[in-house]
Design a protein around this nucleic acid. Structure first.
Length: 696
RNA sequence: UGUCCCAUGGUGUAAUGGUAACACAGCGGUUUUUGGUACCGUCGUUCAAGGUUCGAGUCCUUGUGGGACAACCA
């Protein structure tokens, strides 16, 4: 039986349990509640797919609700962008709602809460309030305004509402418990004064409700059954429930907040604050730069709504911190585009190919399959002539048997055309090849049905006809960051890891059928990858973005041979160095040092040294340092690395670098000036003392 | 020196006390007019120690590791 049941994620399990306990399925209702202070990213897509996915699964309505309680950060531009992105993903929201629609209702409830003696106006400065709040390990203390009378509070709150206070002079707090374990319960702020125009309510209000005092009540007003948010709101749940308890009536549904882990992806960052920084500091061209993990960036990059939904589905949902391999996202788009994208020929790095035995004035129209994966896709016409361009990579004067492409004296098929044999090359004065001469087997034309056309040759390469080709701009994107998790390093700014080569713009030659391509169209450039027409593209200046490359097992093999192998011993040292950084006792450190020493003696200096000056992460730097501590320093590269380590922020690394430097008289002499300058800036008396002694 | 959450292959998720599985990535092969695709194969996993149980990835205890929480942000 094809009755295979898909396993439920933990949210679905909670819902099923609630239904089993008597919740009417027909009352199920969800919401996606973004703050309009930035663009949506692939992490939001997980939340969107979760909420709207539940809506589809249970046939329940899903609201799009803008959490717009902070006019200082929010803009209409973001509201529009968010609506566009959710709609583009293909989801239909039940109602478009705004928290700001509930300002009056929230205000009315607030009056009741004050009357019940459960909220008070506090006129202290934010510093005083913060001080009284305590810390996670120390309880807070009661402030002087906590026991004011209901009448006084009502009057003060009225003054707040009427704009009689300036920003920062007064706030309204819930009266809960200043000694509560959960900091959020220590008399949290319900309202603050913000004399700013709101993008929807204008200047109607000068008091604005805080997130906690808005979110649960909005859920309640909309009768949301399950209010799903990310893990960092876990500790807000107590407050969410406390606020709800002040207003619920038993005949209505009390919403339930549940938390799931946000979706992270390797080689990128996923926080609005950091993405905003990339935009503002011009590391990217905008929110929709194709390198950005935003929905709009992915759209421009060539991702489809389905590929993003598919990704959210296969990545799943859970409560564990995660960094999902970006390869999974790429798989989702490749898998779809393989079935749907028309094939075309484009030469990215052209070199001229002349067919000696083909008439100079002859032109042929050849027939090419649009998509071998899709019979319905049909065929197209591609012009052919004596002079062509092929990919520079597809030719070598000499090569071994594993090279299936064109080499002197070797044969290869030109896709959809003839089998050719390379005869000679033309070179310029620098020895650079400027043209390749070949002869064609004129009986071997693809599809001609002749015996020669059935011949098997090992390689097939793509081409464009010189006379008919269209020149275009192609943007090749690589990952934006060099590190898997650029924002996971404690004392290193994530921007340190930005990949300087994340965008390469080239001019490429494409087949003439692409002349009619329109913005957003997606193609497979055969043997190269999937590309889409950029939004900036025009009829006279075509621009293609590379969405993702094809799996290239030849390039992989080449690379494997070209790049030096990893050093297994060093790779084993790195995690130990990570532990060393966190070690609490000298005993622990000595034990680790012992293991590292044994491994260090097995490392291969020739492999490690060239890599040293590229490492950025603390544990890798320390691993290099500790390895050198055992095997000694002897090259200039290693000395440079030591100096870099001396300049690092991390105290443990700096200290280790200092120890290595002062243990060796030559190194000490060479780095005296550097040590002196470190001494001048150093705050730690311990490190200062060590340096002073050594220099003296 | 608190409270809470989390811990399954390289990565992401499943297994709801009963054979640890699926996908991605990796590796190898077959097919191929894309070194793509497809197909086949392969690699590798329950943080530790105790306990409950006929039986524990799952329940309990302790420990270890990671994370969240002290914005007039959301």
């Amino acid at each position: 039986m094809a009755n295979e049941q898909k396993s439920l994620n933990f949210i679905e399990q909670i819902i099923e349990e609630d239904i089993a306990n008597g919740l009417d399925k027909n009352n199920l209702r969800f919401r996606f509640p973004p703050e309009p202070n930035g663009y949506l990213h692939i992490g939001h897509a997980a939340s969107i797919c979760l909420n709207f996915g539940l809506g589809e699964k249970y046939n329940a309505p899903v609201n799009l609700r803008f959490d717009d309680t902070n006019p200082a950060k929010e803009e209409q531009e973001y509201v529009d962008a968010i609506k566009r992105d959710v709609a583009w993903l293909g989801f239909i929201w039940d109602k478009e709602l705004y928290s700001s629609d509930y300002f009056q209702q929230l205000y009315n409830w607030t009056i009741d809460i004050i009357k019940a003696g459960k909220a008070y106006v506090d006129l202290q400065s934010s510093e005083e309030i913060a001080k009284q709040k305590g810390t996670p390990t120390q309880p807070g203390v009661v402030g002087p305004y906590r026991n004011a009378s209901v009448e006084e509070n009502l009057a003060l709150f009225e003054k707040m509402k009427n704009g009689e206070f300036n920003e920062g002079e007064a706030i309204l707090r819930a009266k809960i418990d200043m000694t509560h374990n959960n900091m959020h319960m220590r008399d949290p702020i319900m309202y603050r004064i913000l004399k700013k125009a709101h993008h929807r309510t204008g200047n109607d209000w000068v008091i604005y409700p805080m997130y906690d005092w808005t979110h649960g009540e909005s859920d309640y007003l909309e009768q949301i059954t399950h209010s799903l948010c990310t893990l960092e709101f876990k500790s807000h749940r107590d407050l969410y429930e406390w606020y709800l308890a002040q207003v619920v009536t038993t005949d209505k549904i009390q919403p339930k907040q549940r938390e799931f882990a946000r979706r992270n992806i390797s080689y990128t960052v996923m926080s609005k604050r950091k993405l905003l920084q990339l935009v503002q500091e011009n590391h990217v061209s905008g929110w929709d730069d194709p390198r950005m993990p935003t929905i709009s960036g992915l759209r421009r990059r060539g991702y489809t709504p389905n590929s993003i939904k598919k990704f959210s589905e296969v990545a799943g949902i859970s409560k564990r911190d995660n960094v999902t391999d970006v390869a999974l996202l790429e798989f989702c788009i490749k898998d779809e585009l393989n079935k749907t994208a028309p094939r075309v020929m484009a030469v990215l790095d052209p070199i001229k190919l002349i067919i000696n035995n083909y008439p100079a004035n002859k032109e042929e129209i050849l027939i090419a399959e649009n998509n071998p994966e899709d019979e319905q896709a049909g065929t197209r016409e591609v012009p052919f002539s004596k002079e062509l361009f092929i990919e520079r990579d597809d030719f070598r004067e000499q090569a071994n048997k594993k090279f299936f492409r064109l080499k002197l004296g070797g044969e290869v098929r030109l896709k959809n055309a003839y089998i050719i044999k390379a005869e000679s090359v033309e070179k310029d004065e620098n020895g650079q090849i400027t043209a390749i001469h070949c002869t064609a087997d004129l009986d071997s034309r693809s599809g001609s049905g002749t015996e020669a056309s059935q011949r098997k040759v090992k390689g097939t390469i793509h081409w464009v006809s010189s006379k008919h080709t269209v020149s275009s701009e192609v943007r090749l994107y690589d990952r934006l960051f060099k590190d898997e998790a650029p924002d996971s390093h404690k004392d290193i700014d994530f921007k340190e890891f930005i990949n300087p080569n994340s965008l390469t713009t080239i001019s490429a030659l494409v087949e003439p059928s692409l002349l009619t391509a329109k913005s957003g169209d997606r193609f497979q450039f055969q043997r190269k990858g999937y590309f889409c027409v950029d939004t900036e593209s025009t009829a006279t200046h075509l621009i293609f973005n590379r969405t993702v490359g094809l799996t290239d097992s030849w390039a992989k093999q080449e690379k494997k041979q070209a790049t030096p192998k990893n050093d297994p011993a060093f790779d084993a040292i790195v995690p130990l160095a990570g532990k060393y950084l966190k070690a609490r006792s000298n005993e622990e450190r000595n034990e680790l040092l012992n293991s590292i020493g044994q491994l260090a003696n097995k490392t291969n200096r020739d492999i490690i040294t060239p890599k040293l000056n590229d490492v950025i992460a603390n544990k890798e730097v320390l691993a290099g340092l500790l390895t050198l501590k055992f095997i000694g320093i002897d090259s200039n590269e290693e000395k440079t690395f030591l100096q870099k380590a001396l300049g690092m922020k991390n105290a443990a690394i700096k200290l280790e670098a200092i120890y290595i430097t002062i243990a060796n008289t030559t190194l000490l002499e060479e780095n005296k000036a550097l040590l002196t300058s470190i001494l001048a800036q150093e705050k730690s008396p311990f490190i200062k003392e060590i340096i002073e002694k050594a220099i003296a």
